[in-house]
């Protein structure tokens, strides 16, 4: 063990003055991103898998949809949406639940670092990782897949994907605070996989049991997918690719925003209930 000289903690020498909450959130986000990137299983699960799935199933598919959209382009949207929703559910759901279970949130409450800055850091780090997913799939599609989209379309798609992290973060937080920490990983998977399939991210709904198509209309991820596909393809290709009739954009938007509000409220109530319970 290193021998150290006792130094007065209160001495002015070696002290730094800190900024406000913005600096704390920024540091929290940077710390989160670094932590995530050094966790191979997370980096692979969250970032590499959507890219690999695109390489495996999107790139080799030379088909073209009836409206003229190459399937390689449709798969770009599918895998980006899959990656973003996965990131939101697992970063916020499983990850925050794990921190709850390990007592980190309790430890944090004993410090001057507000828990909300920790959660904001999680959101910010998820946005960065989502941007990585978007860029990685985008570069792969444009180079190896020959996907050609206007810069404005790429930007719109990227913005929608980043927004997706924010829109589905409440779902993750709801899992984190409503479910027992030990069950969170299982519940997150139980929710995520059906959501991804029933939203047409992997295959058209027409190829799945009819009941999934009926359920899909009540899923925020389905409506999010509809918005995303519409960015890169005409309506007839959206219908063909997803196997479901499309609706006006505002309908999809209300579903996505409405579910974010409802799930966010549920997460907030659960988090407050936990804080009150902890306070006896």
């Amino acid at each position: 063990m290193t021998t150290t000289r006792p130094t007065k903690p209160g001495s002015a020498v070696g002290q730094v003055r800190n900024g406000g909450p913005l600096g704390l959130v920024t540091l929290s986000a940077i710390t989160e991103v670094r932590s995530k990137l050094r966790t191979p299983e997370f980096a692979i699960g969250a970032v590499a898998i959507p890219v690999l799935l695109y390489a495996m199933f999107g790139l080799p598919n030379a088909s073209v949809l009836p409206g003229g959209t190459p399937v390689t382009t449709a798969f770009v949207v599918s895998m980006m949406a899959y990656g973003v929703v996965s990131l939101a559910i697992f970063t916020f759901g499983e990850d925050v639940a794990k921190d709850r279970g390990q007592g980190w949130l309790r430890t944090l409450r004993a410090t001057p670092v507000p828990v909300w800055t920790y959660l904001a850091g999680k959101v910010a780090s998820a946005v960065v990782l989502a941007a990585l997913i978007v860029v990685a799939i985008g570069v792969l599609a444009a180079t190896a897949g020959g996907v050609r989209l206007d810069p404005s379309t790429w930007l719109a798609l990227g913005a929608l994907m980043i927004a997706g992290v924010l829109l589905f973060a409440p779902l993750g937080f709801a899992i984190a605070f409503l479910v027992r920490p030990r069950a969170a990983a299982v519940i997150a998977n139980l929710i995520f996989l059906p959501l991804a399939f029933a939203s047409g991210f992997f295959m058209p709904l027409g190829e799945l049991p009819a009941i999934l198509g009926d359920i899909a209309r009540f899923l925020p991820t389905f409506h999010y997918g509809q918005l995303a596909y519409a960015v890169v393809m005409p309506a007839e290709d959206v219908v063909y690719w997803t196997g479901a009739g499309t609706s006006p954009a505002w309908v999809h938007l209300i579903w996505v925003l409405g579910s974010a509000v409802v799930l966010g409220a549920a997460a907030l109530i659960a988090a407050r209930r936990e804080a009150v319970t902890a306070r006896g």
Binding site: P9, V16, N18, L27, S28
Partner: peptide, 14 residues
């Protein structure tokens, strides 16, 4: 990272 993060919560930190 952890020490820096918690230190940032105080007005001044070592």
């Amino acid at each position: 990272e952890l020490v820096r993060l918690i230190g940032r919560g105080y007005p001044t930190a070592v």
